[in-house]
Simulated assay, not measured.
Amino acid sequence: MKITVLASGSKGNCICVEGGSGTILVDAGISNREIRRRMAEAGADAGDVEGLFLTHEHSDHIRGADVFCRGSGVPVYGTEGTLGGLGGTLKKPGALSMHAVLPGAEVACGDFFVTAFRTSHDAAEPSGFCIREGDVTVGVCTDTGMVTSGMLSYLKRCDAVILESNHCPLMLAEGRYPAFLKRRIADRERGHLSNPAAAAVLRELCDGLSHVVLAHLSEENNTPEKALATAHEGVGLYAGNLDVGVARQHTISDSFEV
């Protein structure tokens, strides 16, 4: 599989996963035009997309879903809660082919097999995904205030992960955000994963991973340098064997293959 994060952050999220004979997208939080432009920049063909998997219904994850999928006939997958939240944003309800996925159940999409798992965020029924093709599995776990033992059990199946590393706790505490927003971001039940929390997850996973992409970094309360440094501290002696990168908001990430 070839993975490219097309966009990641509070202004829009989209991940492109290319397999041997097809492609799937995880989230479509940038415009249809921008999805297609960034896919072309990454060397991917929008005409090869076999399915769009949505982690949750917030606008920075679904903004381009309606137009992209209506225009191409691409089916949309997500939990019942996510699809219910998406429904109110559609210009032509019923025009999309939508398929509810149950957390823990594997869904076939082309040559991919995708399993959703529950995450912890202020959305109706948010999820992460394990995406398998052949004997390779990639995990996507963003927009979650914590990673539970159950979530870890899914991520431990993976050869590579795209993992949230949203904020530096000190930058958040000392930053200009109002107190209620700081509490929301730091909330373990419904918020976003901090750099130290992401590093603790990687400490549990690093023995079995080849690639990590740190995702959904706050432009206000984090820096790529801080996220990378904390992640490298977390993986310790495994740092030399693990390719760790950072996904960006305004440009595509470096693609990697697993």
Rank of each mutant, 00 (worst) to 15 (best):
G128W: 03
V136K: 13
G145H: 04
G245K: 14
V212S: 07
L181D: 06
E225W: 12
K92H: 13
D135E: 15
K156A: 06
C14M: 11
L193P: 10
A100R: 12
G88P: 07
L152K: 01
D111E: 14
P126C: 06
S8I: 09
E18T: 14
G78W: 03
G88R: 11
T230N: 07
P178M: 07
H232Y: 14
G19D: 07
P93M: 02
N195E: 13
S72R: 15
G43P: 09
I3M: 14
N166P: 01
V212T: 08
D66W: 07
A95D: 14
E174R: 14
G51Q: 03
H250V: 01
G94A: 00
L6V: 10
L237T: 11
T115W: 02
R33L: 12
A7M: 12
G20D: 14
L217Q: 10
H250W: 12
A247P: 01
E257R: 14
C206Q: 13
E225A: 15
L152T: 03
S31L: 08
M171V: 01
G150K: 08
C14E: 04
A227H: 08
P126M: 00
H61M: 05
L163C: 11
G29Y: 09
R248M: 11
G51M: 02
T82S: 04
T142V: 15
T79Q: 05
L214F: 12
V17S: 04
R184H: 12
R33S: 08
A40S: 13
A231S: 10
T223Q: 05
C14L: 09
T115S: 13
Y154A: 05
P93F: 01
G19W: 00
R38C: 04
M1L: 14
L205S: 06
M98R: 11
D66L: 05
A231F: 11
E106H: 00
L181S: 11
K11F: 12
D187G: 04
V244G: 00
A197T: 06
N13E: 06
L96A: 05
T79W: 02
E18Y: 01
N166T: 15
A215T: 09
L172Q: 08
E189C: 04
A215F: 03
S194C: 07
G12C: 10
K92R: 15
R176A: 14
A179T: 13
F180W: 13
V246I: 15
